[in-house]
Simulated scan of single mutants.
Amino acid sequence: MDFQIQYLTPDIKLSSYDDKLFKTETVFEYHMLVWFISGETRIIQADKTYGFKAGDIFLIPRNHLATIINYPKDGLPHKAVVMHLTTERLKDFYSTVDGQRKTGHRETSIHHFSSHPLLSSCLASLIPYFEMEGTLPENIAHLKITEAISILREIDPDIDCVLADFDEPGKVDLISFMEKNYMFNMPLERFGYLTGRSLSTFNRDFRRIFQTTPQRWLTQKRLELAYYHLSEKNKKPSDVFLEVGFEDLSHFSHAFKKQYGFAPSLAR
């Protein structure tokens, strides 16, 4: 896979690759503002799937599980400008904002801004810097990120509920969280963090509640979801295994046959 990342600063980067697809399951530590130059992306969250194409701009909130599948398209690589809106920088920004900012419940959905001209202009203005040698001076990077935050607040009056939420995940109901997020193939440490637990506490609570190990329960739930997509939605195994949390098709096929006694292709 020809995958390249060019950083202007630790918080501003240009990513590009031209292989068939690139899939990752992640929880972003910071809010991610993304502008697509070319290619397509599918982002799968617990309750919704999003599709984005060239020209789209969107914000992915931090600390929420997502499966991201990126594709080149029309002979062009998947290419995007990404800006990290870190908690530290956002705290600095809001410390200078006059008046009351909006607060509310923790937002989990992705915010799509289509090809908004103000945001497009702000992010497109970074392209010449990627073509120059050296790094972007911090004062210019600060101005660019501040401009992006200011535009977001101008075009979305409710965005403060996302950007000004500086809380870390608290302890949540384990059954509800796992039933909603089991299809994300994340390390158990990350599941623990997002449920407000250390790894040892997560394992102990999980065994007490579910009467089995996390890995066994996760595999069982992912196979059940795969069976539903194959038999009820008439999907192909190659279209299902990534969405339900498996890393490769052969592993998925082996686990599915062991569970159900027949190959996933026969479930259709």
Results as ranks from 00 to 15, higher is better:
residue 96 T to Q: 14
residue 96 T to V: 10
residue 96 T to D: 10
residue 97 V to T: 06
residue 97 V to E: 04
residue 97 V to Q: 07
residue 98 D to N: 12
residue 98 D to V: 07
residue 99 G to F: 12
residue 99 G to Q: 08
residue 100 Q to K: 07
residue 101 R to W: 07
residue 104 G to T: 05
residue 105 H to V: 12
residue 105 H to F: 14
residue 106 R to A: 09
residue 107 E to T: 10
residue 108 T to G: 15
residue 108 T to F: 15
residue 108 T to L: 15
residue 110 I to D: 05
residue 111 H to I: 11
residue 112 H to V: 11
residue 112 H to D: 08
residue 114 S to M: 06
residue 115 S to V: 08
residue 115 S to M: 13
residue 115 S to Q: 13
residue 117 P to T: 05
residue 119 L to W: 05
residue 119 L to N: 02
residue 119 L to V: 02
residue 120 S to R: 14
residue 120 S to A: 13
residue 121 S to H: 12
residue 121 S to D: 10
residue 121 S to G: 09
residue 121 S to T: 08
residue 124 A to W: 11
residue 125 S to V: 01
residue 126 L to I: 05
residue 126 L to H: 09
residue 126 L to M: 12
residue 128 P to E: 00
residue 128 P to F: 04
residue 128 P to K: 04
residue 129 Y to C: 03
residue 130 F to C: 10
residue 131 E to A: 10
residue 131 E to Y: 13
residue 132 M to T: 04
residue 132 M to K: 14
residue 132 M to R: 15
residue 134 G to D: 03
residue 134 G to A: 06
residue 134 G to H: 10
residue 135 T to R: 14
residue 135 T to L: 13
residue 136 L to E: 02
residue 136 L to A: 03
residue 136 L to K: 05
residue 136 L to V: 03
residue 137 P to N: 01
residue 143 L to A: 02
residue 146 T to E: 13
residue 147 E to Q: 13
residue 147 E to R: 12
residue 148 A to H: 07
residue 148 A to Q: 07
residue 149 I to A: 08
residue 150 S to Q: 07
residue 150 S to K: 09
residue 151 I to N: 05
residue 151 I to Q: 05
residue 153 R to N: 01
residue 156 D to W: 06
residue 156 D to A: 03
residue 157 P to S: 00
residue 157 P to T: 00
residue 158 D to G: 04
residue 158 D to I: 04
residue 160 D to H: 02
residue 160 D to M: 02
residue 160 D to Q: 01
residue 161 C to E: 14
residue 161 C to R: 15
residue 161 C to I: 14
